[in-house]
């Protein structure tokens, strides 16, 4: 019976082949799980979605804006200009403490992705992330999310605010809906929600914030382990 040398000792070839099959299965399962995360990342149109994640010293946010509503009010030349878009976006995000003290914001990368929704079919979303820094670097557990991108002009537009427990891009149904920016039809004004961030999760403090990175790390570990096996 051929023997294979591994970092953990010598193993018979037949057993080794079974181990290899299992590792291949694990790798492909991780791959499928990552696809699943993408497939379920949809939301009812025409709402925008903002996912908030409380980090140390700031709140990380990812916003998704359906392009059709954005196109009602902005020219494509503006939408496709990262500089112009960053300027526009920054003009319409004004988080503040309940005493009115403004938070500082920092707009990150902007990209366009294709999405699909049962109600509206295929559509494009503008996706960008931003960080919100509270005054004096002290995150209060409650703040006023003054965010009126699109809805300052397209007044039927709504923004659903979710709170994530980690930065994994999971199904919105599994996240906590903590507020909505929407038109108050009776007064004609926009209602900005008071967001309760809650206390930090201990596990999130210990583990890296992005579970996707953990998954990638595990896959790499499996690949390295697999490739380290040598047949005698």
């Amino acid at each position: 019976m051929p023997i294979i040398r591994t970092p953990f000792g010598e193993i018979e070839r037949e057993i080794m082949e079974e181990i290899k099959r299992k590792i291949r299965f694990i790798i492909l399962t991780f791959f499928i799980l990552s696809i699943h995360v993408k497939l379920c990342y949809g939301h009812p149109m025409p709402n925008s979605v903002v996912v908030l994640l409380k980090e140390r010293g700031y709140v990380l946010a990812e916003a998704r804006i359906p392009l059709p509503d954005l196109q009602l009010m902005l020219k494509d030349s503006v939408i496709r200009s990262e500089k112009a878009m960053k300027t526009y976006l920054a003009q319409h995000i004004h988080p503040k403490n309940l005493n009115g003290a403004l938070w500082k914001i920092e707009i990150g990368k902007i990209e366009f992705i294709s999405s699909k929704d049962e109600m509206v079919g295929n559509y494009t979303e503008l996706v960008f992330d931003f960080k919100m820094y509270p005054p004096n670097d002290e995150i209060s557990e409650i703040f006023n999310f003054d965010y009126d991108i699109v809805c300052h002009q397209v007044i039927t537009h709504k923004v659903d605010i979710y709170l994530a427990e980690s930065s994994v891009k999971e199904d919105f149904n599994k996240m906590k809906l903590v507020g909505q920016v929407r038109l108050d039809t009776q007064s004609g004004g926009i209602i900005f929600p008071i967001i309760a961030l809650g206390k930090s999760n201990l596990i999130d403090k210990i583990l890296p914030s992005n579970r996707v990175l953990i998954l990638i790390g595990l896959v790499f570990f499996a690949i390295i382990l697999y490739s380290s096996f040598k047949v005698k």
């Binding site: 059709p68 397209v154 007064s187």
Partner: peptide
């Protein structure tokens, strides 16, 4: 000057008529 992507008072919006007519 506002824009509308949908109805203001569609389904589920009963009794929420604006207080001021424009």
């Amino acid at each position: 000057s506002s824009m509308f992507g949908d109805l203001i008072l569609g389904p589920g919006k009963d009794g929420q008529f604006p207080t001021t007519k424009v």
